[in-house]
Design a protein around this nucleic acid. Structure first.
Length: 480
RNA sequence: CGGGGCGUGGCGCAGUCCGGUCAGCGCGCAUCGUUUGGGACGAUGAAGUCGGAGGUUCAAAUCCUCUCGCCCCGACCA
């Protein structure tokens, strides 16, 4: 048995395991450009399913897609003080075009608040134009010092929603509505049990008045910010003159928001669900929900088995995303392992014995080995598969939720917090003082992940650093 | 940008300290045969500017200088 057939146990070296899963499952590769990645067809298919589920939700909440330019004049960034400070260090800048040096350098967008703000200032004239609810799918570039496939690449693919509203309240509601959309997507499609919360002052987005995030616990108990939603107040509207005439014919600045979710979600799915066999994908997002593996020996068997396989495939298509692995040159055992590594949630085995009995073998990816196997009659296989995929989706969410909850603990002191975040998340009160927050980070290597909107279950508390009364508790964890 | 590690057929590596039949192993790949219900086996075969550039030497994967890239840990961040 050669070394490359084993995946690194998740508990030993999580980073190595993660890289191996990404590469061997053929999700992505390194690009010939520093810090960038090539998303391979299998990874892209997964991403497209994520896009589909999000787009469906965006449509339901009244949003439309649009496309804005990749290149942004440098001067746009200088219009909002915090924004330029936040992004200047990580801009990629185009200085030449058509063989000549440009009069004004162009930044490759690191995010599109500025160009979109510029356009909104032209589009919005009246309160009747509001709200503007637009989303963009595309890629952006941030020259990060350190990169990781999917989690932090220099170029990354995402959606960024940008909205403009007539009132502060409406913009704040939008910010939280979209946070809720992300949480709903993560929980019900990705089976990633996220917590929702507000970012602290130090953690919030450059130029935002308030930032919110969904945070997920990875298999090594680190935290990952899986989606963000920002309330800008009138910061960008004032910087870009986004104004409208209200009912009283008075000029007002808009209230704007933005929210984004990236290919980082793919990384989250890998790190939340993956196991020693490799990738595990939730049925709702898996490129292939079902792989059918026909098994035969003789030519006679082959004919009968492939006939049955085709019948089953037709019964499942197009209701499910199905692929058939009838490669004659590799053994069934090889196929089992390969598709398990690639995370396909349900495998159907059809061999001579199954044809004879007119049933198929169902093998669950989320329960590896024999315990995950069962039979389903060929007639009515679609119903059995539908039920099984629902079961798998629910089971994956349940186990990820149980894992998360088992690894979150309350901390009453800094010492307790330090001990907890070494191998989990801490819930700890913090007075809101920046110095106390910095102290926690220094002493524990943990960051303030978010201040949950739902503060239930804990009474009034005291800051774990200074002991002063604290209004709210946060999740603290090591983070990607 | 600091600290550590690594660049040798497609992939994973040995060889580097001590220069000289070291161009080698496993997997993969190709052909043929036997196999096929949990990563098959045998035979034969193709494939490598040893990351790059300079230098030392009769001789460099190996020593020296510079350089490029990647991975991990920090700082930064979706």
């Amino acid at each position: 048995m050669s070394e490359d057939k084993k995946l690194t146990p998740r508990s030993e070296d999580f980073s190595a395991w993660y890289n191996e899963v990404v590469v061997r499952a053929e999700l992505a590769d390194y690009a010939p450009v520093r810090g960038c990645m090539v998303v391979r067809p299998y990874g892209t298919a997964l991403w497209e399913n994520i896009q589909g589920q999000l787009d469906r939700r965006f449509k339901e909440t009244g949003h439309q897609n649009a496309l804005f330019p990749l290149l942004i004049p440098m001067s746009f960034f200088e219009k909002e003080k915090d924004h330029v400070e936040g992004f200047s260090p990580e801009l990629a800048v185009v200085t030449h075009g058509g063989g000549k040096e440009l009069e004004e350098p162009l930044a490759v967008r690191p995010t599109s608040e500025t160009v979109i703000g510029y356009m909104y200032s032209k589009w919005i004239r009246s309160y009747r134009d509001l709200p503007v609810l637009i989303n963009q799918w595309g890629s952006v570039i941030r020259w990060e010092m350190r990169t990781r496939l999917f989690l932090r690449t220099a170029e990354f693919y995402w959606q960024e929603g940008h909205t403009a509203h007539a009132t502060s309240q409406e913009a704040q509601e939008e910010t939280q509505r979209m946070l809720g959309v992300y949480a709903d997507f993560a929980i019900h499609e990705a089976a990633v049990p996220v917590v929702e919360g507000r970012k602290s002052e130090t953690e919030k987005f450059a130029g935002a008045q308030a930032s919110y995030s969904i945070e997920a616990m990875m298999g090594n108990k680190w935290a990952l910010q899986a989606g963000t939603s920002h309330y800008f107040g009138q910061n960008f509207a004032k910087a870009f003159d986004i104004q409208y005439l209200d009912r009283n014919n008075e000029l007002q600045h808009c209230w704007t928001t933005s929210w984004g979710l990236s290919t980082r979600m793919v990384g989250a799915i890998i790190m939340v669900h993956g196991d020693d066999q490799g990738l595990r994908l939730p049925p709702n997002l898996a490129p292939y929900q079902v792989v059918i593996v026909p098994i035969w020996r003789s030519d006679d068997e082959q004919t009968a088995v492939l006939e049955a396989t085709e019948r089953v495939r037709r019964a499942l298509t197009p209701r499910f995303r199905v692929t058939v692995d009838d490669r004659p040159e590799v053994t069934p055992g090889y196929k089992f392992n390969e598709w398990e590594m690639r995370g396909v949630p349900l495998r159907i085995e059809i061999g001579p014995r199954d044809v004879e009995k007119q049933h198929v073998v169902l093998a669950r990816r989320d329960v590896p080995g024999k315990p995950g196997k069962s039979f389903a009659p060929m007639d009515g296989v679609a119903e059995a598969v539908g039920d099984m995929l629902d079961t798998i989706q629910a089971a994956m969410l349940a186990s990820a939720t149980a894992f998360r909850d088992a690894n979150i603990h309350d901390a009453a002191t800094l010492e307790e917090l330090q001990a907890i975040v070494a191998d989990g998340w801490a819930r700890a009160y913090w007075c809101g003082d920046l110095a106390c927050e910095a102290r926690i980070k220094e002493e524990s290597r943990a960051t303030n992940r978010c201040i949950p909107l739902d503060q239930q279950g804990r009474g009034p508390g005291m800051c774990v650093v200074c002991g002063e009364p604290a209004q709210a508790w946060s999740y603290w964890a090591r983070a990607y």
